[in-house]
Design a protein around this nucleic acid. Structure first.
Lengths: 207, 207
DNA sequence: CCGTTTATGAACATAGCGTCCAACAACGAG
DNA sequence: CTCGTTGTTGGACGCTATGTTCATAAACGG
């Protein structure tokens, strides 16, 4: 038997309220009172479902994390296989992910997302790095994720954003040479084992 | 005539209180009441000097920003000339900068520092990028700063950190190849116009 | 239809913020 | 040293937000 319809309705409403409010004022500035008002529910109702504003957020983020793991597993071992999928996902669910990844996100949000990405990237790199690598993997991972999050954040806030596969290409172009040089990995920026014949060279002309 | 001694004493105390508290609990968790208690001053005294917890923070950050600009100007045009100086500065003023750059920093802190670095890096890259660069400068800047901040943050929190020049070398190793490929810049990772004969190849063996 | 689960709203206790003010103390210029 | 100026103090106040509690009413679904 599925969850009580009232429960679903309530949680959905709270979830939506937080996301839209985050888009308007940023996570930190959102108050529980506002969430309640926007979701049009009673105060006590909120606290029977969640302990916190943060609790609501984490629930939302867990869903995103699951999605990313699934993408990683479905990307057939390509280096940074999550990347393009994530750019595309942001493109589709722009509203939600702009709230999470953009500048209005807040420390809690970013740290959590960072952690998810760090795990993904570490597994990616561990399986490829040469034993005589010049740079410790942990450090390389931080660098990659830092760069990725910066690109994603800017892109999420961008009003006339590049198409996802172009952002993915830019990311690879910027990051993979350094990783290759530092970890002794051979993969080229346009590394693509199975599909993607040539179109992923869709790099921008200029700014 | 200099500032009234009482004023100096008070501001100093507040400043120190915030930094030590940030190290203990992180910026977000610090309350004005705690600052007051730690600084051992009256509540109203705090508000005659600062409007906010954030106001105190910004004052501190402005000092750091000034330092970075000075370093940039003194680094004689080397690509990412601020980098080594900043790593070294963090090394010396570890306490202060760990509070600012480490994971306990908080969004406000990181955004402000990010802005400073973005300005520095943009100037660095603008003067070098080829007109036919494959990636827009703004995007490259974000990527570099994202990577740099990630390294700096991890390093600031690290208990047995690498020496500064080694971190600087790692950063260059990781970032410069991608930048070179994307912007058509010629500089090698160990780019060094004047000094630094060969010792900057001080890269780590392994993790 | 009826027992069970949710939703509700109002009341309450608590914490932090920022302001105000009148009394007091420290400063430093002359 | 004196005195006008400036800074400090602490406590009271109003406000916003948080999280809890409870009795009542409504919605659920088997």
């Amino acid at each position: 038997m599925a969850v009580d319809r009232r429960v679903r309705r309530t949680r959905e409403a709270i979830h939506r309220a937080l996301v839209t409010l985050m888009l308007e004022k940023g996570y930190d500035a959102v108050t529980v009172a506002e969430i309640i008002e926007r979701a049009d529910i009673g105060r006590s109702t909120f606290y029977t479902h969640y302990t916190d504003k943060q609790h609501v957020l984490y629930t939302t983020l867990d869903a995103v994390a699951d999605f990313l793991r699934a993408q990683r597993d479905a990307s057939g071992g390509r280096l940074f296989g999550f990347s393009r999928a994530l750019f595309e996902h942001v493109h589709e669910q722009r509203e939600l992910l702009r709230a999470l990844l953009g500048r209005r996100g807040g420390t809690v949000v970013h740290n959590r997302i960072r952690q998810v990405l760090v795990d993904l990237v570490r597994e990616d790199l561990e399986s490829r790095a040469r034993p005589d690598a010049v740079v410790p993997i942990e450090i390389a991972v931080d660098s990659v994720v830092g760069s990725y999050l910066a690109l994603l954040g800017r892109w999420a806030d961008d009003r006339e954003p590049y198409p996802p596969q172009q952002m993915d290409a830019v990311f690879r172009q910027l990051v993979i040479p350094g990783i290759a040089a530092s970890l002794g990995i051979t993969a080229a920026p346009d590394d693509s084992p199975s599909k993607a014949p040539k179109d992923c060279s869709g790099l921008p002309e200029r700014a």
